[in-house]
Design a protein around this nucleic acid. Structure first.
Length: 819
RNA sequence: GCGGAUGUGGUGAAAUUGGUAUACACGCCAGACUUAGGAUCUGGUGCCGCAAGGCGUGAAGGUUCAAGUCCUUUCAUCCGCACCA
């Protein structure tokens, strides 16, 4: 029989579609599995990374269907976003048309790859129905105080002409187009994600067993919680009068209160309000002002190159010693962390040390190492140690003194214990067209007013002109004009749209909703409770989403819980982060010209070959090096697997075999088949190393091929097609339908009898060095085994004394000799 | 600088708890069938060596009867974060 991949694949793809084979059951009493892959942006064509992603999720989904689970394996498109708009600017395409044409094409690709997605739950986040519910959530969050509008210094990408969240700034550049970002003062909507900072951090603990530790660490670092002391540094009388009594002082934050006696200067960020005041009121030399302006204009990358600063010629008073401390402006002080001001302890902080050395400021050591001595003329001592020069705290260790010093500050009302986070509130407004409109209205009388829920969705206009200059919603002749939902007078609609990460923060909940209710509700508590019970069972996607998407989705889940839409804390029980797909050692990318087009591959070999190669070439979390002859090898295996199926007989149940009556080769073949099954179960349930599972099946095939018993062949195929169905579904359904009436695509029972053996092979080592092999009866006595082993390695024992004999049951014998 | 990962044949990679290192595949070599083979089948293939034997999991030590696996030190590559007070 000839293996014609394309014919077989198309016929089964049509069969599955016609029979609605992959729609989940609405019976919420069945045991469930929710298998989710990160949905794609509809860029136009799938790339190999997508194929790897969906092959993995499909493999899980098909396995759990065989196990009798009710499986939800949905797909959608994260379809808002800048590329659609950029295509419009470049080619004059309509973003909506461009997007939905791409979606149609990619759906076709899903079909030809044989992915078992639920067709009926497919969605695109740019669908108006999706926007409608999202806008509803935005309103709920605003009412809860979790969304607010404020003016602030924002990251602005001059190329994409939009605001970016901190998370979207990579090395000071736009995460999408790599243009260096600028700071711009604008109104912007924010989600109060910081309110959930503690919980987002603490709940990482719940994910320990299911998420890669790397991702947990990245999230932990991103949230960046640190405990310390916050206190006020007060100006002396000179400074106060110089500042016209506008400022009493300023707040600083430190994680090292134990170094408080070592403070020898203090520094403000160039953007600090006191600095701004002094510039505006001409309290600084022109030269100093010039220096400060230069610092502000320097990008964050350049600022890191060398420390720079200028003195402000004002002083504060040390809170304990009451000594006078000079105030500087320093380029390494960040305005958006803590209060934008630091107490500087050059003796015990590297940055403060460098700065003090450069500007010849005094360095006052107050902590010694527990052992030995530190040379403060060379570097700062930043470890914990023993305090000196620290008044009543002398002799205490760092840890103890931190506690005592914070207590002292609190008792004397000088300061308080605080927690600081690197995590910032999530800015979500974008000055773009192709996004979900933020459902607010600006009214002259009422101010900022929410749209009424019955008016949702606030849909995008279709007749826009997209030039790349400014926001098309802003320049549209009529769209933004509306009446105030509160007083009815003429008002202006908000023209900002939402960050696309908002859509991907709840799509996994939408998939839980039965399509019958899609018009009526976003999702029901009951359906979500069922499918999300213990979370999405397997969430599969790229490591590049380790921070942004996964953090936002966790945040939304917690918010929805507090809005009483659901009853759990964490959305994703198990996270599998796949490795990149490489060719010639580099990530596949259009710009490098090292891509492999999935469509061409399917055309040549079929989808099953692509799927098999992807799973066989490397374990899922590792990088996958593309290799054309490896693909060829996968094709040949499938071809052989298909052709040799003719050795099986038609049967409706697994054949019964009298194991003891078989030949050695037949027994061995059965053992290999069942070994493959045992390994497959482990791989699907725990290890996810599909490469080793496939290797097991190949070994079993090799063993089957060395014998000719038709029952052994039939049983072998019964089991192996079941194991392989999730990987090469078309081939396996085809074989199974011809021989087994599809009955074997189900949970398999392992027969232990095939593992019982009469004799086993043991390795024989001398001094740990492998020298020979012996074959002994399974129940052979230890004495006999040793005797036989000695006989086998007699040559290596000549003239030597055996001082120890070790027998490891079923493994080996080790003889330790001397002389 | 901080955090994490990885390092095994010519290549992708196996080795679940310390127990015969290199399974499975690619590549290569040889043979069979062939007018032919980039098809198929069979066999071989860690390195050095004619052999006996020796050497082998980035490097160096250590623990152990036994180490890819555990401990110490170190090198290289990759990824993430990065003046976070």
């Amino acid at each position: 029989m000839e293996y014609k991949a394309r014919d077989i694949e198309q016929s089964w793809q049509n069969h599955w579609e016609k029979n609605r084979s992959f729609e989940p059951s609405e019976d919420l009493n069945k045991p469930k599995k929710y298998i989710l892959s990160m949905f794609p942006f509809p860029s136009g064509r799938l790339h190999m990374g997508h194929v790897r992603n969906y092959t993995l999720s499909d493999t899980f989904a098909r396995y759990y269907r065989q196990q009798g689970m009710n499986v939800l394996h949905p797909i959608g498109f994260d379809s808002f976003g800048m590329p659609a708009e950029n295509a419009a600017i470049k080619n004059g395409a309509d973003p909506k048309k461009w997007t939905y044409e791409n979606i149609d094409y990619m759906k076709g690709e899903f079909k030809t790859l044989g992915f078992s997605f639920s067709k009926e739950r497919e969605l695109a986040t740019s669908d108006e129905l999706y926007t409608k519910f999202e806008q509803g959530f935005i309103i709920d969050m605003y009412e809860k105080g979790l969304l607010y509008r404020k003016k602030g210094l924002l990251n602005w990408c001059p190329h994409d002409k939009t605001v970016l969240a901190n998370e979207q700034v990579v090395d000071g550049c736009c995460w999408r187009c790599d243009t260096p970002i600028e700071k711009k003062d604008m109104n912007q909507y924010y989600f109060k994600i910081t309110q959930y900072g503690d919980e987002l951090l603490a709940d990482l603990d719940k994910l320990k067993d299911g998420w890669p530790s790397q991702v947990l660490t990245m999230q932990e670092n991103w949230i960046g919680k640190s405990n310390g002391l916050e206190f006020n540094l007060f100006f002396d009388d000179d400074a106060k009068s110089k500042l016209a009594n506008k400022f009493e002082g300023f707040d600083v934050f430190t994680t090292r209160p134990d170094t408080i006696y070592g403070v020898s200067y203090t520094a403000l960020a160039p953007e600090h309000e006191i600095v701004t005041y002094m510039i505006e009121h001409e309290l600084l030399d022109a030269k100093v002002v010039r220096e400060i302006k230069k610092m502000k204009a320097t990008s964050s990358i350049d600022r890191q190159k060398e420390k720079a600063g200028v003195p402000l010629n004002i002083n504060v008073v040390h809170p304990i010693t009451k000594k006078s401390i000079p105030v500087w402006v320093a380029n390494f002080v960040l305005m958006d962390y803590g209060s934008g001001a630091v107490m500087a302890v050059p003796a015990h902080d590297d940055r403060d040390y460098d700065f003090a050395k450069k500007y010849e400021l005094s360095i006052t050591p107050v902590i010694n190492p527990k052992e030995g001595r530190h040379d403060f003329s060379v570097s700062a001592f930043t470890d914990a140690g023993i305090l000196f020069n620290s008044g009543e705290f002398d002799g205490l260790n760092s840890k103890k003194s931190q506690y005592n010093i914070i207590k002292y500050f609190e008792e004397h009302k000088l300061g308080r214990k605080t927690t600081n986070y690197k995590l910032k509130d999530w800015g979500v407004s974008r000055q773009r067209y192709w996004g979900a409109p933020i459902p607010f209205v600006h009214c002259n009388d009422c101010g900022l007013v929410m749209e009424k829920k019955e008016n949702l969705p606030i849909a995008l206009p279709s007749d826009v002109e997209i030039t790349g200059e400014g926001n098309p919603l802003e320049s549209h002749p009529t769209w933004k004009h509306c009446s105030c939902p509160s007083c009815g007078k003429d008002a202006i609609r908000e023209t900002d749209t939402m960050d696309t990460f908002v859509e991907s923060s709840w799509y996994f909940l939408r998939f839980c909703a039965s399509p019958a209710n899609w018009e009526k509700e976003a999702f029901s508590k009951k359906q979500v409770a069922y499918w999300m019970n213990s979370g999405v069972d397997h969430y599969i996607g790229g490591i590049e989403h380790a921070i942004l998407h996964l953090l936002y989705a966790r945040f939304f889940t917690k918010v929805f819980r507090d809005l009483d839409y659901l009853d759990f804390d964490e959305p994703f029980a198990k996270l599998l982060t796949q490795g990149m797909v490489l060719k010639d050692g580099a990530k596949m990318s259009k710009s490098k010209g090292n891509t492999v087009d999935p469509d061409a591959l399917i055309e040549k070999y079929g989808a099953d070959t692509a799927r098999l190669f992807i799973l066989f070439a490397a374990p899922p979390t590792q990088e996958l090096e593309w290799n054309d002859s490896g693909v060829e090898g996968s094709y040949k295996f499938i071809k052989r697997f298909f052709e040799r199926s003719t050795n099986a007989l038609k049967c409706d149940a697994k054949p019964k075999i009298e194991h003891s009556s078989l030949t050695k080769e037949e027994k061995f073949a059965r053992k290999k088949v069942y070994e493959a099954q045992v390994r497959a179960n482990e791989v699907y349930e725990e290890r996810y190393t599909f490469n080793t599972m496939i290797a097991g099946v190949m070994e079993a095939m090799n063993a089957l091929n060395a014998q000719s018993n038709v029952d052994v062949w039939s049983e072998g195929y019964w089991i192996l097609t079941s194991i392989m169905e999730p990987v090469i579904p078309h081939t396996c359904w085809d074989i199974s339908s011809r021989y087994f009436n599809l009955k074997n695509l189900s949970k398999q029972v392992v027969l232990d009898e095939v593992f019982v053996e009469d004799s086993i092979t043991l390795g024989v080592s001398v001094n740990g060095k492998n020298r020979a092999e012996i074959e002994v009866a399974t129940d052979e006595s230890k004495e006999n085994i040793i005797a036989l082993a000695k006989q086998q390695v007699a040559k290596h024992l000549e003239g030597k004394t055996i001082i120890k004999e070790i027998v490891v049951p079923k493994k080996l014998v080790n003889l330790v000799v001397k002389g």
